[in-house]
């Protein structure tokens, strides 16, 4: 039997998207990697672009600017932001998958922050978290909890926690929505059978929900990891890498290099990000294929 004849779309349908993908994504990415080995700068129109080998990469790891710390911050953000979003989102999804009153309203309310632009979120939270006249500290004062007041965005010991909190506020609803989609696909008969067998909530979670949610967990994990590795907006709008360099990540450094005209160095930073993403991406894909197999 000739299976190909039964295909709805012919092979050449892929040509146009492939050409667009290669021209506007793949080629610029490869060019970017190529430029990371040059001295490309804002003055290159006059001086030309010259091959400098691994100089940019050596500079990244030996520079007076602590780029390595920026890379470590990026990895830390990726891990922590995923943990603090995935776990609460899973429990929220389970809760809002039950037949409770105003379920739709709650789902909408939790999802809403994820559609807000980062610039708006930055403006709102910078105002809320202001030490002197921010809403949060004012509320704590009002509740006679003044001892809990913090310099939310300028204290070295607190600033990352503030960023994670804002990031979770924005992202939990999105992750939750994907979990809800996964949960609604689990047949209720599984839970009924488990209940008859006397299984409690945790046993049902471990034996039914989590195994059946593998697909949703993987999707959230992949989205979360790629989001975490290329994080820029939330840091830029809340702290711009500060106070000092305390919250610099790979992309904020790359942005700074670009804005001072050091395009070669900037593309080298992005190439480092590409390598890290590729390594983690390959790992995740392998893990997924193993589970599918």
């Amino acid at each position: 039997m000739n299976v190909n004849k039964k295909k709805i779309y012919p092979q050449w349908f892929i040509v146009l998207p492939l050409v667009i993908y290669v021209l506007f994504f793949l080629l610029p990415s490869i060019l970017g990697v190529g430029y990371s080995f040059t001295d490309w700068s804002s003055k290159s129109a006059k001086t030309g672009i010259h091959f400098v080998g691994l100089k940019n990469y050596i500079d990244i790891f030996t520079s007076n600017k602590n780029y390595v710390q920026g890379i470590l911050h990026t990895l830390m953000f990726t891990v922590v932001s995923n943990i603090i979003k995935l776990i609460p989102a899973l429990f929220l999804a389970i809760l809002l998958n039950e037949s409770i009153k105003c379920r739709g309203l709650y789902r909408t309310l939790f999802y809403l922050p994820s559609i807000l632009p980062f610039v708006i979120i930055g403006l709102i939270f910078k105002s809320i978290l202001n030490y002197n006249n921010g809403l949060l500290n004012a509320a704590l004062e009002f509740l006679h909890l003044g001892f809990l007041k913090q310099k939310w965005l300028s204290d070295l010991g607190v600033v990352w926690k503030s960023i994670f909190a804002v990031d979770a506020w924005r992202g939990v609803g999105y992750v939750m929505t994907i979990f809800i989609a996964g949960l609604s696909a689990i047949p209720s008969s599984y839970y009924e059978a488990a209940s008859i067998d006397g299984a409690n909530f945790w046993q049902k979670l471990r034996m039914i929900t989590l195994p059946m949610l593998k697909g949703s967990i993987m999707i959230n994990l992949v989205f979360g990891i790629t989001y975490g590795l290329k994080v820029f907006d939330i840091i830029y709008v809340l702290t711009n890498g500060g106070p000092g360099h305390a919250t610099e990540v790979l992309t904020t450094y790359s942005f700074q290099l670009y804005s001072t005209g050091q395009y070669g160095m900037s593309t080298a930073m992005n190439t480092v990000l590409l390598i890290i993403t590729a390594i983690i991406g390959v790992g995740v894909v392998k893990m997924m294929s193993r589970q599918e197999g």
């Binding site: 007076n64 600017k65 890498g241 106070p243 000092g244 360099h245 305390a246």
Partner: peptide, 22 residues
Amino acid sequence: ADLIAYCQGTMDADTVLANMDA
């Protein structure tokens, strides 16, 4: 940014100046 790092004790004064040189 370096000056703030210095005020917060995560960088010393001469490093602030050396960074400007670099």
